[in-house]
């Protein structure tokens, strides 16, 4: 196990090196952070900024300098915000976590329940309902669904009861109570999207497991149905779901661009969009590295959990 983890970490350094180089060099080639000064009435403003940012030096040299600092944990300063890149990302991560952690927990519970129900009640009315609903959930554009939720919860329902809207949707709130008001709608958007996907995986996985010999044997031995499903079948059926959840978790660390945009949540997705628009190479590179680290770590975690759940899997 230890060798496996060390080998995966060693591989991940190569991944991170390639990802950071591609991002830094690519962004430096296509974007110019001094472009917004092109219409400045001071004709030398742009030249001064180019010098200030070191853009007068070759891109490889700039990347080398960035990499030298990054390995010591210093990801430099944002060209746009003139602030520590890591500080900005940690702040954004805090907001994304407020959205993602409750969303993930709720989605995992719902996906497990719906997937299990749909599998053991295959082709029932309930199964057809959840199957249809999940297809709607997967195919619905996030921004559209977000606006529909706002319309329903902020306008239609309160006005039908002659009340002021309870839920808010611009920002994230200050107190814990506020957070519920502000995060309810974006969390709903996230949950519906991922439950739709995960519940399908879990249903399919359960349907693979339920006809297995060892499940039939358990039934034949008189093990109660609830125990067969929740203990014997679920343990193996969870393996693919956990892998999918881990991959999604890694990707979502990078933020939920559309949801964060609609609900004005200053998370990782917003940071990414702003940095991309500006051409902020240090910020984008650090963002990519951080997201890549998350993907690698969550995949590693998935493999470890996989091995623990299924002894047939050997990590060598």
């Amino acid at each position: 196990m230890t060798r496996f983890i060390l080998r995966r970490i060693a591989y991940s350094f190569v991944v991170l090196l390639v990802a950071s180089a591609v991002t830094f060099i690519g962004i430096s080639i296509v974007a110019d952070p001094t472009a917004r000064l092109a219409q400045n009435r001071d004709p030398m403003a742009r030249a001064r900024m180019r010098q200030e940012l070191g853009l007068d030096k070759p891109v490889i040299q700039r990347y080398g300098k960035w990499l030298g600092s990054a390995v010591t944990g210093d990801f430099g300063r944002s060209w746009q915000k003139k602030d520590s890149v890591i500080g900005i990302l940690m702040n954004a991560m805090k907001y994304t976590a407020w959205l993602v952690i409750p969303g993930f927990i709720i989605a995992a519970v719902l996906a497990f329940a719906i997937g299990t129900y749909s599998a053991i009640r295959q082709y029932s009315a309930g199964d057809y309902f959840f199957t249809g609903a999940s297809f709607v959930g997967i195919s619905m554009p996030q921004f559209w669904f977000a606006l529909i939720l706002i319309e329903i919860f902020v306008f239609t329902i309160p006005s039908a009861f002659g009340m002021d809207p309870y839920f808010r949707f611009i920002g994230i709130g200050d107190t814990l109570g506020d957070r519920f008001k502000y995060l309810f709608l974006p969390v709903c958007v996230l949950v519906v999207q991922i439950v739709a996907e995960w519940s399908r995986y879990h249903r399919a996985s359960m349907l693979d497991i339920l006809p297995s010999d060892y499940i039939r044997s358990a039934h034949a031995r008189g093990v109660p149905k609830r125990t067969v499903v929740l203990k014997h079948a679920t343990k193996n059926a969870l393996v693919p779901l956990i892998v999918i959840m881990a991959i999604d978790a890694g990707l979502i660390v990078g933020g939920l661009v559309v949801t964060e945009q609609v609900f004005s949540i200053p998370g990782m997705g917003r940071v990414f969009v702003e940095a991309l628009e500006y051409g902020d190479a240090p910020m984008l590179t650090a963002w990519v590295v951080l997201t890549a680290v998350a993907v690698v770590l969550f995949n590693l975690l998935a493999d470890i959990i996989n091995a623990l759940l299924d002894p047939r899997v050997r990590l060598a």
Binding site: I150, F169, G171
Partner: peptide, 19 residues
């Protein structure tokens, strides 16, 4: 001053009295 990144949300927030 609350930062609102999306124009449609901005109008919704204005109509809802959030801003």
């Amino acid at each position: 001053f609350k930062f609102v990144a999306d124009t449609t949300s901005e109008f919704q927030a204005f109509k809802a009295g959030e801003v």
